[in-house]
Design a protein around this nucleic acid. Sequence first.
DNA 1: TCCATTTATGACAACGATGTCTGAAATCGC
DNA 2: GCGATTTCAGACATCGTTGTCATAAATGGA
Lengths: 334, 334
Amino acid sequence: MRVTIKDVSKAAGVSIKTVSRVLNKEKYVREETKKRVDAAVAALNFSPSLAARTLAGRRSFQIALLYDNHSPHYIHQVQDGVWARSREEGVRMLAQPVDVGSDSLAAEVGGLIDETHVDGVILSSPVTDAPDVLAELERRGVRFVRISPGTNHALTSSVFMDDVQAADDMTTHLINQGHKRIGFVLGHPNHMASDQRHFGYRRALDRAGISYEPTLVRQGAFDFASGRDAAEALIALPAPPTAIFASNDDMAAGVLAYAHSLGLDVPHDISVAGFDDTALASLVWPPLTTIRQPVRELAYTATKLLLRPETDVIHQRLPHELVIRSSTGRPRTA
Amino acid sequence: MRVTIKDVSKAAGVSIKTVSRVLNKEKYVREETKKRVDAAVAALNFSPSLAARTLAGRRSFQIALLYDNHSPHYIHQVQDGVWARSREEGVRMLAQPVDVGSDSLAAEVGGLIDETHVDGVILSSPVTDAPDVLAELERRGVRFVRISPGTNHALTSSVFMDDVQAADDMTTHLINQGHKRIGFVLGHPNHMASDQRHFGYRRALDRAGISYEPTLVRQGAFDFASGRDAAEALIALPAPPTAIFASNDDMAAGVLAYAHSLGLDVPHDISVAGFDDTALASLVWPPLTTIRQPVRELAYTATKLLLRPETDVIHQRLPHELVIRSSTGRPRTA
DNA sequence: TCCATTTATGACAACGATGTCTGAAATCGC
DNA sequence: GCGATTTCAGACATCGTTGTCATAAATGGA
């Protein structure tokens, strides 16, 4: 029925162990022997059973990707990056949605590890910051790499972008266009990135010698509705801002919608900037000036780090990109 | 090191085979024995090795989900549905992006089957219609279920929604609001759904006694830009439509953007309708009237069909939903 | 030339479960 | 009360690989 390593060994006239050596690129196989085996593998269309390899060997050729993020776009890019590198390494990806709020999370992750024997785990934000998951993985000695972690954890590798610098870049861009009153919509308080983006906004203002005005900063929650509400409050101010920087695209879309409902022209009456460069950013009118997070690259790099033989800890930063579209421009008063 | 079935059997004072029986809910285990085993499993925190079960048994407790769709939102919902049901059945999901254009697709799928021994496969559109994949799966006798297939294939189960009826519903909704000149933006010509939605549009017009005007129908490609272009052409007509029904949300967003750029008010100057109810639909202004595809439910149901013990072929239709938001309204002239 | 090392291959156990077979104990029918 | 049937549990082979160890041939250094 199934083609096994035994069939291949017979066809090539060698022992199964030698076939195994070729399959795993081990040393001590003569070039000519290797050729014969390769030919037999191709002729029989042989794919080794992952289950058997996992059971017998110390590797499972599988890694798990844990995520709990409600942005399909983000998840998609993460999966894409992890998958791309896994493919190159000849490893399968097990995508595993989890609930960071759940009490049984650590137990679930433990069960996953036991069941699948995965060689390593990629953690994407916010699973990166679930202490019980980290503890469980460490207890079992499973390798893992974190993508955009919010907390520090010097013991394992991570990849991330500089949210502070990105928010600084965007704010500076607006300042350079002549804006002096720039509204800011905070992200969800539970997200580490929220603070960092806020900090970048302040830093850019400071550097430009513009004083920080708390009334120009409104709480948001990374969703459309909170962006809309924040815009309403900001535009109702006695001295409204000439630009609003929302700390993600969904909220920026909310700002945009509210501005439209007032009949305001963007960017002439008010500039709007977002953050993340989700698909949405180019699907609203006008398309959003935003920050492109290198999500796919982060995921790819994380997987590369996970699967490399060395075990030293690396914290790698990847560059972001300021994407200027037509939702921002010079203010009328400038 | 690892907790095995042997440890459990020792702790419970039974043979490993009896533990296996309890694990697999087989008959012929006394209630009291079962309890002892369950207690031991819980105490030792035992999770059976998938690799060993796969190798020894006839099941692998894994299914594969094949997709090649460039809408993250759609994929996300599909994964979510498949995953939810898999979890209920105690089975792992292997998400596998593929390239339907690739020559080596069938070979890749074959390799996947051999490597992983998956118990079954879920095919999502457009992988549902790759003849070589279907042939490969059948050749190997692997069970599979298709989600929203474009082609007929009586031999295997499928789940789908009625695109014709949905487009008919939307068109009828517009007609009921008083529209008589309704523009239509076609989807990508390679997609089966495009024809079906077009047909539903015609059917509704026919029933209402409104003649079909080819100039009101424009080719699109399911993306933002093509929606924009189609809107431009339609609005430039000597007798422009009072409503535009785009056959997906991305194109509807394009229509919306173009209307905004002309300073038109939606829905008072022109109504706009989409299809799919993607996240985008509620993130544009005004939010889109659209058709909600039950994607997650389709995926869930497909997985349920895949994993049920019966092997009869079922073709199951799931209901869609007309979602009325504020991008459509009565025409001025009515 | 001879011994030590490196290179190359194979035999066989092991991984951790399930499938098959066997047999003992409990239950049933009459 | 006895044989037939059902219920329950264990011994052992097996799944398809890799790890370990043994061994033979080739190579190198003195």
